[in-house]
Amino acid sequence: MHYQKFNLIFLVLVIIWCFGMLSPVMLQRINSYEIVKPFINQMYSTVCHQQQAKTIALFNEEILVCSRCAGIYFGVLFGIISSFFIRIKNNLLKFVWISSIVVLSDVVAVNFGFYDYSKIIAIASGLFFGLTIILFLENEFKFFNLLNKNEK
């Protein structure tokens, strides 16, 4: 029961976060949004470089984070939703390491000029990373019984 509650709260928070990320696209016709946009933009700039060339644009509006961050957040969102339906009993640490290496390799390769930045690769690697990290976290919580109030 604890896990379901925890998951539900986390799901709501991630949905709010993703909505904020997509707000320039979804709220572009609302006048008052433009006045709060600098504040929301400032919030997201704390955790993303927001480079124009690396950001996805939908309906002529750019979202508030880069492609990789968008991939990570959507990966986390899919991970939480899937955790309601799927039970994974294996230790996912290996997958977390693999997905971290994939993300890191892409960052290093792009920064050292081995190939040009690709939004598709950035989204895909971010998605994989976000998905594995949230499923790993969920699994560890269950394995160590961390939400049990009588722990320790």
């Binding site: 400032q42 997201y44 640490l93 976290l137 560890e140 919580f141 160590f144």
Partner: peptide, 24 residues
């Protein structure tokens, strides 16, 4: 205000992830 909201959210997530990694 803008920075603290995001930093605290991501800090909390990082704390939980760090806990999971270290325990494992």
């Amino acid at each position: 205000a803008a920075t603290s909201i995001t930093s605290v959210i991501f800090g909390l997530i990082g704390g939980l992830l760090g806990m999971a990694f270290i325990n494992r």
